[in-house]
Lab assay of single mutants.
Amino acid sequence: MSIQHFRVALIPFFAAFCLPVFAHPETLVKVKDAEDQLGARVGYIELDLNSGKILESFRPEERFPMMSTFKVLLCGAVLSRVDAGQEQLGRRIHYSQNDLVEYSPVTEKHLTDGMTVRELCSAAITMSDNTAANLLLTTIGGPKELTAFLHNMGDHVTRLDRWEPELNEAIPNDERDTTMPAAMATTLRKLLTGELLTLASRQQLIDWMEADKVAGPLLRSALPAGWFIADKSGAGERGSRGIIAALGPDGKPSRIVVIYTTGSQATMDERNRQIAEIGASLIKHW
């Protein structure tokens, strides 16, 4: 067993022997301040990774656009098919120029040779490549099948209805392509620590998230040296922004954090800054 596999296998073990965790309302004060600064709703939840206990939450059962955070769930569904012998990570998928959609920095470079399922998941999570996500959605049967996968996990809230990039439209009061912070946090925890996926697939999923290259201005910008984070960000229309993450000190994750916002007129930089400040408060009061 590799060191990384050992780390993920012992996530519940280490967490069980940690000192009790206590909620700190100071972080919620910052979440509410972010709402004021952005002029928009902000949803927040913080779960203990081992027990699933909610440590703090704000608007945990209000719907927010998922945006690209759905790509972690998508690759979880792909990995479940791999575990069941219905898919192979090494299978190569070929596609054409007509398949390319807006923001496809990886797939646009491989029109000639195609990409493997493993490479597509890596591109979808680490670079948020939209064509990679659409190609992977095709392998599982489309958005409705991802929703069905989530329902089978016990998540009857999260739903995907459309493809990239239309799913980022974020129309107010439109339930399409949305989740709730509580539902997303619980589902992410199941994917990373539950028995739904094999140990190898859980490790692969967290490795992809740990290698995320496009979430630097968010929670990662607030992390002290030595902290662990595996995350996936999302951005959408109407001032929408979000991030889902597993993080913790001492090089291992111990909490799940989900943050979503929508309806702001603020710039992307300002949305990023507010999420980073929430992260800084979380870490300060850990």
Rank of each mutant, 00 (worst) to 15 (best):
H24A: 09
L28E: 02
V29H: 04
K30G: 14
K30C: 14
K32H: 01
K32R: 03
E35N: 12
Q37I: 10
R41S: 09
R41K: 10
V42S: 00
V42M: 00
L49F: 15
N50F: 08
N50E: 04
L55R: 09
F58C: 15
P60V: 05
E61N: 11
E62Y: 08
V72E: 00
L73C: 09
L74G: 09
L74C: 07
G76S: 09
A77Q: 09
A77H: 14
A77L: 10
V78E: 14
L79C: 06
R81N: 03
R81V: 01
R81G: 01
G85S: 03
G85A: 02
G85R: 02
E87V: 15
L89S: 02
L89N: 00
R91A: 06
D99E: 13
L100Y: 13
L100G: 14
Y103P: 04
S104F: 00
T107M: 03
K109E: 13
H110R: 14
T112R: 11
D113P: 08
M115A: 01
T116S: 10
V117L: 04
L120N: 01
I125M: 10
N130L: 01
N130W: 02
T131K: 02
T131Y: 15
A132C: 11
L136A: 04
T139L: 03
T139A: 03
T139K: 14
K144C: 09
L146A: 02
T147A: 14
H151L: 08
D155F: 03
H156E: 02
V157F: 06
T158E: 00
T158P: 04
R159Y: 02
L160W: 10
R162P: 11
R162D: 07
W163G: 08
L167S: 07
L167R: 07
N168M: 06
E169L: 03
R176A: 01
D177H: 02
T178V: 06
A182L: 11
M184I: 01
A185T: 05
T187W: 06
L188C: 11
L188T: 13
L197G: 09
L197D: 05
L197I: 02
T198K: 10
L199P: 01
A200W: 05
R202N: 09
I206V: 14
A211S: 08
K213D: 07
G216W: 01
P224C: 09
G236K: 00
E237G: 13
G239F: 12
G242F: 12
G248Q: 01
D250N: 02
P253W: 05
P253V: 11
P253G: 11
P253C: 15
R255P: 06
I259N: 14
I259C: 08
T262S: 13
G263H: 09
D269K: 00
E270N: 07
N272T: 10
N272S: 05
N272R: 11
A280Y: 01
S281F: 13
L282V: 08
K284D: 03
K284P: 03
